[in-house]
Design a binder for these strands. Structure first.
Lengths: 357, 357
DNA sequence: GTGAAAGCGCTAACAA
DNA sequence: TTGTTAGCGCTTTCAC
């Protein structure tokens, strides 16, 4: 009893009377041509128009031409909303991150955006402002408006993630690995990075290290710290609470001086740069008096003075790869293996021989 | 021209091989409860369920309770796709930028994301990779999947923008003003920023300036350069082709030395930082031998050595404000006035008295 | 090859 | 207050 849709109604209010309501009153975007109108104009059924618009090969060339012409003339494009509903597919994927200001996530965003864009998919982005529970909520919400998602949630409890894993699928996790979660994860081998850093530092004769710790609860921070402890059995290690931003590192400079370390391992490049600046302001020579290392290799790291020794991680590669995985998942393939990217040590000017003393 | 918006494309798999198409087979997400099921379970009509889910006050408390319970039990949430179609509204806004790696656009992204998020709207993001025509295409496409958009398109020809203005509405333009385009724009008073910079520099005795030019075609670059020419009638100005990235600035260092300027005005903070580093590597003292200024005040500018003198522009404020404007537009209000934010001069260590010579 | 018709899941005008 | 009904615009069997 529904049958032929709004075709039958001969509209009375074409262009004449009421002014076009500015606000989105009715569902009708006013000017948009519909498949019905095109069908009418081309003298074919809606089904045929649909077939033509979707490039079905089973339409006679003649009709294809007629439909194309009509569509062109009416400036017609199929309604994405209607397709979503009919197809049960959105053509969109989503990315959830704690903080869009963080170069780490910016890298993923770029890689993902480019890869998904190339595949003709749109990208929905949301930021939790570092609130793990918010990440969960956003992820759930975003997932309902997309076909799959990429989740960066370094702080959310593993159980919480597992509890919603089903509802999130298909999805891939980045910068983190959660055993038991049914999703592929792309992460960084933080321990390997730290080991490289420590080897470099000890090779230079450093024995007293300070670690500028990242945010408590951050999975990355925990791994880096643990690796540092493990990798440095013969070393004296001071852990300084710090954070993840420039200012945190900057503020930690006095504490660094106070603890007497000859080398500082920053949680990331931002705290390391901040500390570097702070130290120099305090008259401490880098690397003559104190060596400093970062982590991540943000674009800026090359341009500090001296340039920052750090380990490089493939930020946008994570984004690209996340797309590949997601794509596979969306096609019903298995998620493949988890991968841990091995960071690469980048020795630059901020590290040097330990001061002999 | 348009007509077959990407639909035809959507079918040919861009992945080669005859892999299964992404997305669920049937429209049925398998497990999802529908409004009908809830209605049935609660023993009411679908309309009532709809009313309850939308918080209509005209439903008896008793029914509200029954519906709520049923919805809860079935783990029901209304289908966003169906609502889009029925409502003619997406609950989403879109942002188009040339480059997600640029701090300028990252700032807008953050501000917009937060503001829109707070209002319960989702955010679609796309990047044109600096291709102006691509921006136009992405904008058109994104707009069809959203209720409004924010466009950053510093290089697209004004006429091109005007030609699609109607189809983009409601939208707001950032970092640029296009007369005749029917959209509010939020931009930066580049001339004022440059004037402040020049005043600062001439006050320090500089008479020979070099300008590290941004990308040709960039509206911002054109304005800054013009302002520089205008503001410096008595000065000797050398324009050095450069770019917008760290490396561009870095590469320009030798040319800076070659031209004999005592002060360098960078198109933005990135080229300025790059040049700063390059100059110091060349043994040039900053600011003793050469002063350097940037533009934008990216987070990093405070942490160069010496810290960069620059002018600050309200990047995320632009994003927040863009949301406000868009919101007003979407409610049928007028776009309000265009605004030009006045940059604020930030004098830091990279500028000093001109070397007496 | 082409069209008729039955949805996709929800909202809203109109009755009752 | 609540239900009935007619769409929103597209896709997709299923006959012809």
């Amino acid at each position: 009893m529904r049958a032929s849709t709004g075709n039958g109604d001969q509209e009375q209010d074409r262009d004449g009377g009421g002014r076009p309501r500015a606000g989105r009153r009715g569902p009708r975007p006013a000017g948009a041509a519909t498949i019905s109108r095109v069908a009418e104009a081309a003298g074919v059924s809606r089904a045929t128009v649909s077939r033509v618009m979707n490039g079905s090969p089973t339409v006679s060339p003649e009709l294809v031409a007629r439909v194309r012409a009509a569509a062109e003339a009416l400036d017609y494009a199929p309604s994405p909303a209607a397709r979503r509903l009919a197809l049960g597919r959105t053509g969109t994927i989503a990315l959830i991150v704690p903080d869009l200001g963080n170069p780490l996530f910016q890298g993923v965003l770029r890689g993902l955006s480019q890869a998904a864009g190339k595949a003709g998919r749109q990208l929905l982005v949301a930021e939790s402002d570092e609130d793990p529970e918010e990440e969960v909520i956003l992820a759930l919400e975003a997932r309902r408006n997309s076909d799959g998602l990429v989740l960066a949630s370094p702080r959310a409890p593993a159980e919480r993630l597992c509890s919603i894993g089903e509802r999130l699928a298909p999805f891939v996790l980045v910068y983190r690995e959660v055993p038991g979660l049914g999703a592929p994860s792309l992460s960084i081998d933080n321990a390997a990075g730290v080991r490289d850093l420590v080897a470099h530092l000890t090779g230079l004769g450093h024995r007293r290290l300070a670690y500028l710790a990242g945010p408590p609860g951050s999975a990355g921070n925990a791994e880096r710290l643990a690796a540092l402890r493990a990798a440095a059995p013969g070393l004296e290690l001071t852990v300084l609470p710090c954070g993840s931003m420039f200012d945190d590192g900057h503020a930690a400079a006095p504490a660094v001086v106070g603890c007497g370390a000859s080398a500082v391992v920053g949680f990331n490049d931002m705290v390391a740069s901040g500390a570097l600046t702070g130290l120099r302001e305090l008259g401490v020579g880098v690397p003559e008096d104190v060596s400093i290392t970062g982590f991540d290799d943000i674009p800026f790291a090359r341009y500090t003075t001296p340039p920052l020794t750090t380990v490089s991680i493939p930020k946008s590669e994570l984004g690209r790869q996340a797309w590949e995985r997601l794509w596979a998942l969306m096609n019903g393939e298995s998620g493949g293996y988890n991968v841990r990217y091995q960071p690469r040590l980048l020795v630059r000017g901020s590290t040097g021989p330990a001061p002999s003393r």
